[in-house]
């Protein structure tokens, strides 16, 4: 059986290398701004996808209720 320390080392090797998402020469304020904008974009995308699903759901419900069919 493999020793726990060896297991950790192997696991560490298999993991993806850590990716720097911000440039090293950026100031702290710039890094914070970058992360804030990325978070805002992600939330917007999430809202857009959620909205899209909601619209599809509403269309389906209304059409099935009123006409008994989608098309």
């Amino acid at each position: 059986m493999m020793a726990p320390a060896q297991q950790d080392e192997d696991y560490a090797k298999d993991r993806m290398p850590r990716v720097e998402i911000v440039e090293s020469h950026w100031s702290d304020a710039q890094k914070a701004e970058f992360l804030r904008r990325r978070r805002a974009r992600n939330f917007l995308l999430l809202a857009a996808l959620g909205g899209f699903c909601l619209i599809i759901y509403v269309i389906a419900m209304v059409k099935l209720h009123e006409y008994g069919q989608m098309w």
């Binding site: 970058f34 904008r37 990325r38 805002a40 917007l44």
Partner: peptide
């Protein structure tokens, strides 16, 4: 100038 990415209002 760092490319900090666009804000949602820019896409809008």
């Amino acid at each position: 100038a760092p490319d900090l990415g666009a804000e949602p209002k820019d896409w809008l």
